[in-house]
Design a protein around this nucleic acid. Structure first.
Length: 443
RNA sequence: GGCCCUAUCGUCUAACGGUUAGGACGGAGCCUUCUCAAGGCUUAAAUCAGAGUUCGAUUCUCUGUAGGGUCACCA
């Protein structure tokens, strides 16, 4: 049994998208799970469209996601190799130089075509099963513009042979490319790799992907949006594959341990951002306190961070609890969820009185009691504040009689974190000041 | 249009030819609660349609329908 070698071969002609991430992932996972090799190959044979910046982009995505490759090739470095094969094919008259009548701009008067034996080609797909095509209608298809300019189908086959690729794992859009590549394999005397065509990622309502769909954004942007590498890997793996158990949260290593090509789905799947968010949160929960701090700070707008620098460390856990990605951190802050940090809060008497449910005298009584209780707390931490205040609040018929005025006095907001958390964030001094200010408006 | 592929809750999916068709996300409701968040519990929700094979089809076969892929001197 020879070593498994897989490859992922993106073309640097545009942004690298999430669909590519999944193809790469399945190749990676399969190779790693079999103790084999994973090769990355930049298919830049089209000089018109290939751009270095796009190659840098997918390389950056691979690095971010931790999909490390064992070897890297660039097709533009391998021109001599393709030329040699092309010459051999022509010498053996398996391919030939064909005179053409150009119909479009840029077309050559001579191209290289493969002599198509015109037969039925059947191959066994690991995921889809047996597939048969009649290659007759392909005709003598073009494999190179000229001896120096091989085309995609040709370079793929030459490279896969030279790199000893054992498993070609790619999207189902390549399924109809397979027969012509098999014909080329037979022409150059290459052995046939095993094929596994994985289901495509679909847009909402299972239709074709449109630019509107979230998955069409460049993959690297998920990094900027605060998605964790393992969450992306985890989520992408789950579109089109499952381990057969109820388990859904996986680390990269767990994925490697569980992944099986024969459990890959046949039908396409929709990219569901809600589930990605949930998975991201699950991975976020595994971060250490320090990592959480770094993560949250990265997404806090600078002006907000500067204005509230004294509270920053303390609100990190409060923010973290409420979000599942980095974008939500920005949204949370923009939505004024932390307006209570500002010293200028304005209060309304009715709201302070538990939305007019309570008499001002009673509210004042509670506020005074709170001031005294809190005054006596030396170590002003959430737990101690909570136990002290709760002990008092529980003596009332409804805790809200105490807790609502406290929370509102401290935040000035209808909705906010609980009063203990706010108090601990503001600190003893500011807390007392705000309670006293609230007292004043009750007269 | 030709060729090829696919079809289970809204979404991702599970189910030797025999299950009350299971789980997760999202939804709804309840609990917890001073509000929000988090958490816990409960719940609604699917086998594309029609034939056939079979004692019995989500599962096998055929037809239809729908969706997708591909038909380049792109990859």
């Amino acid at each position: 049994m020879s070593e498994v070698i897989t490859r992922f071969a993106p073309s640097p002609t545009g942004h690298f998208h999430i669909g590519g991430v999944r193809s790469a992932l399945y190749n990676y996972l399969y190779a790693r799970s079999m103790g084999g090799k994973f090769i990355l190959r930049s298919e830049d044979t089209d000089p018109e469209r290939s751009k270095k910046e796009y190659e840098d982009e997918f390389l950056a995505v691979f690095k971010w996601l931790g999909l490390e490759h064992d070897e890297f090739f660039r097709q533009s470095d391998r021109k001599e190799i393709y030329k040699k094969y092309l010459e051999d094919l022509i010498a053996r008259d398996v391919a030939y130089i064909s005179k053409e009548t150009p119909t479009e701009e840029g077309q050559r008067a001579e191209v290289i075509r493969l002599r198509n034996p015109g037969k039925k080609v059947t191959f066994e797909d690991i995921i889809l099963g047996e597939i048969t095509f009649d290659t007759t209608d392909l005709g003598d298809f073009i494999i190179a513009r000229d001896i120096e300019s091989p085309l995609y189908h040709f370079t793929v086959v030459v490279d896969d042979m030279e790199m000893k690729i054992t498993h070609v794992i790619r999207g189902q859009e390549h399924i109809s490319n397979t027969p012509r590549q098999i014909l080329i394999q037979e022409a150059i005397g290459a052995s046939r790799p095993l094929y596994a065509h994985i289901p495509l990622i679909l847009g909402k309502d299972k239709s074709k992907l449109s630019k509107r769909d979230p998955e069409v954004i460049p993959a690297i942007e998920y990094k900027d949006q605060g998605y964790l590498p393992e969450a992306i890997l985890n989520f992408m793996a789950l579109i089109g594959w499952n381990p057969g158990t109820d388990e859904e949260v996986f680390t990269k290593d767990a994925l490697i341990g569980q992944f099986k090509l024969d459990r890959v789905q046949k039908g396409g799947g929709v990219f569901n951002i809600e589930k990605l968010n949930w998975i991201n949160k699950e991975h976020l929960k595994k971060l250490t306190e320090q990592q959480i701090g770094e993560y949250v700070k990265k997404f806090i707008p600078v002006d907000f961070a500067e204005k509230n620098s004294q509270y920053l460390e303390k609100i990190i856990p409060v923010i973290f609890e409420r979000i599942s990605n980095g974008i939500e951190i920005k949204e949370l802050i923009e939505a004024s969820e932390f307006a209570f940090l500002s010293p200028e809060i304005s209060l309304q008497k009715d709201v302070l009185n538990w939305n007019a449910k309570q008499d001002s005298l009673v509210t004042a009584l509670h506020l005074k009691a709170l001031i005294e209780l809190l005054q006596n707390i030396d170590d002003f931490n959430v737990d101690l504040i909570k136990s002290t205040v709760m002990q008092y609040a529980d003596t009332q018929e409804k805790r809200g009689a105490v807790l609502h005025p406290m929370r509102y006095a401290l935040s000035g907001q209808d909705r906010s974190p609980d009063p203990f958390t706010i108090a601990s964030i503001l600190g003893k001094e500011e807390t007392i000041i705000r309670l006293e200010n609230a007292l004043k408006i009750l007269d």
